[in-house]
Structures are given as structure tokens and as C-alpha cells.
Write a protein that binds this DNA or RNA. Structure first.
Lengths: 187, 187
DNA sequence: CCGGGACTGGTACATTTGTACCAGTCGATC
DNA sequence: GATCGACTGGTACAAATGTACCAGTCCCGG
């Protein structure tokens, strides 16, 4: 395991976020990483292999973020739940939005290339599972259904935030939306 | 206005949906459309021009779908609202998912290329506006906020449906999610 | 010390790409 | 019927791309 490999993967993520999966060419990645071209072909058998591993890295990290925010003890009422959700959304959207962009790229690509579907599934399960862990004790009527609704509110909201950024979105509009949803979902 | 131009645009949409914006090369589009290569360079000044116009066409159509489903008289109670939303989501997700995929591509690309942002904004306004028109009379507490929440539930749900299709999603899981959200949002 | 695998850095090459160019055709207008 | 503009179909070409190849270097086990 060389660190050169990691450097290349990190660079790939930046390129994907900045210019999309297809812009992640061997040369672009090598230039971004500051390594010679052959480093990208030595450590990764092909371009799609490179991209797939970069996406796996993103999912791994996002999954860790979800896990850490969903760690027990879970929130015990609606207000605590909202705070947790806002914090999670903020964490996912931070990091100069690179991971988030890559994640949405993954979902779109998974719809086309079957090889990426297991990865998309893994993310989905971790994400939904994390939210379900949060809603479990928060006095909601149907915790699993609530997790789905809340995950979509966050996912849709962050996507729009990616396309048309508005200052303070997560702490403002998104929190309001989550509150409105939870109020209804709560007992 | 030649019909050749329209044929090329339609072909572009199919290619974008099937393989992504970057796969929409002049040659791929020409082959898909069954026209010679020069038809794509004659009617469109550049590749990005071609893609942008194709995305505009998608948005135009989706906007029309939203408008038709949001046409007055708006739903007057929660149940009617749900039916309308499910019908809208089904309409957006139909058509072999080509327009929907292209739409998400647009949102991601808009985050990167400023030239696409006005188009993304237009879509967003039309979409949110349509939903607001639907929620206006449906006895909801805060109709505009409800429109945002519901739009994100639908947008997030359809994105996941694109990545990991499940049979009967719109009529099943999505309807449930909308009901759960509206129950809370309703007075 | 030294042999060999892991890795680096450089270059080469066939293919694909965007785009320009050109010689023709067709249909309407004078 | 001549003319002109819109359009077609074909080809050309420089640039970028994926990937293979090769000669070196580093480092660890013997």
C-alpha cells in the first residue's frame, strides 16, 4: 500500500467534484496529484477502475460520517432529532462539497452501469440505516417511514444546494423543512 | 427551422440519458440520430451548445408536465393533493426515465458551470411554483414550506429510484412518504 | 551485500475527439 | 429559368485520450 496510491485517489475525487466523472482522465488526475502519468495506470488497471475506487472511498467516508452522527444513544425527542439531522446534513455538505458531488455522480452512474449498483446500495443502506437508528427512539409514529421521508428531504435539499447554493441553507431552510416534516411524523 | 435539428436534439437526449452528458459527442449523437456528422456541427455551434439546448428542451417539457398537473383548480384537501403529487411524480418518471436522468445531470452540471445555472433556476422556480399552486388550497399550515418539503421528498425519491429502481415505487413507497409528510403538514 | 519485487518516471501509439472545410442539392424568390 | 441561401454529406486534421512499454530506483529479506 503506497501513499502514492492514496494521493492519486484523493486527486481523483477533487477532479470528479470539480469537473465530473468523465473529466477524471489519467492525465488530469496525474496533474492534479502532481505525479507522473504512469502512476495512475500502475496503481489502477483502467480508468473506470480508478473512478470506481475513488467513489468507494467517498462512500466509505460518508458512511463513517453517518455512523458517527447516528451513534447511540439516539435522540429521544423531536427537537434532539432535528439537531442531529441538521448536524449530519452540515457534515455531509462540508468539505468544499467535493464528496457530496461525487456521491450524486455515483447515484446517476449507478442507474447506468450495473457494476456501480452494489456501491450505491451500500450507501443507501448505511444512510437509511443511520437515519432509522436516529428516529428509533424519537417518539415517532412510524420510524422507518420517517427515516425514508427525512432522508429524501435531506438528499433533495442538498442536491438543490449543490446546483444553486444559498447561504445558510442547512441551518435555515433545511432545518425548517425537517421541523415541518417531523412535526407531522411525530406522535 | 429544420426537422433535422429536432432529430439531433432528441438523439442527444437519448444519449445523455443512456451514457451521461460527456458521452454526448458529436459522433455518438449523429449515429444515434442517423444523420451525418456535420449535421451536428452545422445546427449547433459547439458541443456544449448542443448539450445546453438539449437540456433546455428537457426542462421545457418537464415544466409543461408540472404546469399541467398543477393547473387550477388546485386540490382542496390532503387526499386530493396526494393523488396529484403521485400523478405528477409518475409523469416525471415515465418516458423511459430519459428526461429525468438528463434533469439530474443538469443540476449537477449547474453546480459547476455558471452558464447552466439560469436554466436550473428556471426549472426550480417552475417546479416549486407548481407545487405551491397545489398546496395553496389544500388546507395546509404553511403552504410554501410544504411545497419545499414535498418537492424534496419527490426529488430525492426519484433520484434513488433512478439509481436503484424498485417496482411500484411511485404508487407505493413514495405515496406513503407523501402521506406521512402531509399528515404532519396538514392542519 | 545482493537479488528481486514494488514502484517510479518517461515515452510511444493507436483511437477518439471537436471542429473546420468543401463541394454538392434543394426550394423558394425574382 | 437563374440565383441565393439554407442545408446536406463527406472528409481532414490537430489535440486529447487510454493504455502499453521500458529503463531505472528503492527497499527489504536472505
Amino acid at each position: 500500500m503506497s501513499d502514492r496510491r492514496d494521493v492519486v485517489l484523493e486527486a481523483t475525487l477533487r477532479v470528479v467534484a470539480r469537473s465530473g466523472v468523465d473529466a477524471a482522465t489519467h492525465r488530469a488526475v496525474a496533474a492534479e496529484a502532481g505525479v507522473p502519468l504512469a502512476s495512475t495506470t500502475y496503481h489502477f488497471t483502467s480508468k473506470s477502475d480508478l473512478v470506481r475506487q475513488a467513489l468507494e472511498l467517498v462512500i466509505e467516508r460518508s458512511t463513517a460520517i453517518v455512523a458517527s452522527h447516528a451513534a447511540p444513544p439516539g435522540p429521544e425527542d423531536a427537537d434532539e432529532l432535528i439537531e442531529r439531522l441538521v448536524a449530519l446534513a452540515a457534515a455531509l455538505a462540508s468539505d468544499e462539497r467535493a464528496p457530496l458531488t461525487a456521491q450524486y455522480e455515483l447515484l446517476l452512474e449507478a442507474g447506468r452501469r450495473a457494476e456501480l449498483r452494489p456501491l450505491a446500495e451500500r450507501w443507501n443502506e448505511a444512510y437509511l440505516g443511520g437515519l432509522a437508528a436516529m428516529t428509533a427512539r424519537a417518539q415517532l409514529r412510524r420510524p422507518e417511514l420517517a427515516a425514508e421521508v427525512l432522508s429524501n428531504v435531506i438528499e433533495g435539499g442538498l442536491l438543490n444546494q449543490l446546483a444553486l447554493p444559498q447561504a445558510g441553507f442547512v441551518e435555515g431552510s433545511l432545518r425548517e423543512q425537517l421541523q415541518a416534516a417531523v412535526e407531522g411524523l411525530g406522535g
